[in-house]
């Protein structure tokens, strides 16, 4: 599983930064194209739900998703062949 922030919805309130037990969410510094400073993810692979969801077969922790007032935080299934995880460097 992979943790994602939906940049179309995030309003940059940084509430997620105070609830994550691993402090994965860090205040961002760069404006995005909507003029919002979206938090950045610090080593998101540490996220409990990312690591253990499949093992337990249910949603774990989820504090960030619950507190996000803009419904912007979600997880995607990692597909080893999808563009998202394949980085092509030239």
């Amino acid at each position: 599983m992979k943790l994602k922030i939906d940049e179309r919805r995030c309003k940059g309130c940084n509430l997620c930064t105070i609830v994550c037990p691993y402090n994965i969410f860090q205040e961002g510094r760069k404006l995005n194209e909507r003029g919002i400073i979206v938090p950045v993810l610090d080593r998101p692979e540490r996220c409990t739900n990312c690591r253990l969801r499949h093992l337990y077969g249910r949603q774990l922790c989820g504090a960030c998703q619950m507190i996000c007032p803009d419904q912007a935080i979600y997880w995607v299934e990692e597909d080893p062949y999808s563009e998202e995880s394949v980085v092509i460097e030239f």
Binding site: K11, G12, R53, P69, D70, A72, W75, V76
Partner: peptide, 25 residues
């Protein structure tokens, strides 16, 4: 994706009008 309760939201209406950091969401 695991947007847990997405089916309960009117997707076409989001993002909502609440201010940044509003607790209502």
């Amino acid at each position: 994706t695991t947007r847990v309760f997405e089916k309960w939201y009117r997707e076409d209406r989001l993002p909502h009008i609440f201010c940044t950091g509003c607790g209502n969401g």
